[in-house]
C-alpha cells in the first residue's frame, strides 16, 4: 500500500490569476479524500501564490475529473488528476 498519494490539481477561471496554467501537486496520506484535499489547498495555493487570499472561492469551487463532477467524499488515488472548478460563467 502506498503510504502517500500524489495528486495533481488544475485550477481554472479566477484561479488562473494566481496559478497560471501550472497544476498544483499535493502529497496526501493514503486514504485521503477530496475533503482532505480541500483543507490543504489554501496553503498549497499560498505556497505558489503568496497573495492568494480568496479562500471563499475555494469553498464554493467544485472538483471534477474529465468525466464528471466529484463529491468531497470521493477517495483519491495516487497519480490522480483533479480539476478545481470555480463558479461557472460561460455562454
Amino acid at each position: 500500500m502506498t503510504p502517500h498519494l500524489s495528486v495533481e490539481f488544475t485550477l481554472y477561471g479566477a484561479f488562473r490569476a494566481h496559478t497560471g496554467h501550472a497544476p498544483l501537486r499535493l502529497t496526501l496520506p493514503a486514504g485521503a479524500t477530496l475533503a482532505d484535499a480541500r483543507r490543504e489547498l489554501p496553503a498549497a495555493l499560498r505556497a505558489v501564490a503568496p497573495g492568494f487570499a480568496d479562500d471563499a472561492l475555494l469553498a464554493v469551487s467544485a472538483f471534477a475529473d474529465e468525466r464528471q463532477l466529484l463529491r468531497d467524499d470521493t477517495p483519491l488515488s495516487d497519480g490522480a488528476a483533479i480539476a478545481v472548478l470555480p463558479p461557472i460563467s460561460g455562454g
Partner: peptide
C-alpha cells in the same frame, strides 16, 4: 473574472 454559478 465574472462571478457565476457554483457546480459544487
Amino acid at each position: 473574472w465574472i462571478a457565476g454559478r457554483s457546480l459544487r
